[in-house]
């Protein structure tokens, strides 16, 4: 693994960052962690996201990079305080990257899906949730061979996104984006399942390409994706 990225440090990415950094630090699997997010912490984030009050107004990627650097000095932790776009993805996502994609829009998922298809060795883990349910998708390619399906292969909402990459929006458009209701426990479940998929891939035991979960029924369902 050359590089590990977390894209989106909101409800899901903000909770998987520390356990991931801790695991990378102790295992020595990868010594480079890049955090990318164009958003800043606002007061309304405090009810659900992993923020500290002194981080109000601070870019989320920068805030997490500072925290993690203090705790895990053996890893090189860098922040990319902007939304990933077609312009920036080439420099960020390189061969032998592991990407935790924790965004809330299909346009960015498509961007990453298309880019990762062009690589030979990549592990892309995409997590998303609605109010009380969600899913984690895994795209895994080793030596040019796809072990699981690309994110958009069976998901038309990703293949033909009707939303837009935040990198393309003006500040006014970003501010007017509707926020859905979310629950911290759903975010935590998505983060945990994303980390589970990562561990399964690292130990060559990954047998699924997607897992759905529902926090109200307690059910999860791992499915093959070819």
């Amino acid at each position: 693994m050359k590089r590990t990225l977390i894209v989106g440090l909101g409800g899901i990415g903000g909770y998987l960052a520390e356990p991931l950094a801790r695991y990378l630090d102790s295992s020595g699997l990868c010594r480079e962690l890049v955090l990318a997010d164009g958003d800043v912490y606002t007061a309304s984030n405090n009810d659900r996201q992993s923020m500290r009050l002194e981080e109000l107004g601070v870019n989320k990627a920068i805030a997490h990079a500072k925290r993690l650097s203090r705790s895990f000095p053996r890893i090189s932790i860098r922040s990319c305080p902007e939304y990933v776009s077609e312009r920036s993805i080439d420099g960020l996502v390189v061969e032998e990257s592991v990407i935790f994609l924790c965004v809330d829009n299909h346009a960015t998922r498509k961007l990453f899906s298309d880019h990762c298809r062009r690589l030979d060795d990549v592990l892309l883990i995409s997590a998303g949730n609605d109010l009380t349910d969600g899913n984690v998708q895994v795209y895994w390619k080793v030596n040019g061979i796809q072990r699981t399906a690309p994110l958009d292969k069976h998901h038309d909402e990703i293949r033909f996104p009707t939303d837009r990459n935040p990198a393309e929006l003006t500040c006014e458009e970003l501010a007017s984006l509707p926020g859905g209701g979310q629950i911290i426990f759903t975010n935590l479940t998505a983060a945990s399942l994303a980390l589970n998929a990562f561990y399964a891939a690292m130990t060559s035991k990954l047998s699924y390409g997607e897992v759905y979960f529902d926090v109200l029924t307690g059910r999860s369902n791992a499915l093959v994706r070819r």
Binding site: D104, G128, D130, L131, T132, N135, G180
Partner: peptide, 17 residues
């Protein structure tokens, strides 16, 4: 195939919060 989650919008009942 169920769509990927986004933004918290869901057909689940929203009476909880």
């Amino acid at each position: 195939v169920k769509a990927s989650g986004e933004k918290g919008y869901s057909p689940s009942p929203r009476f909880l919060i």
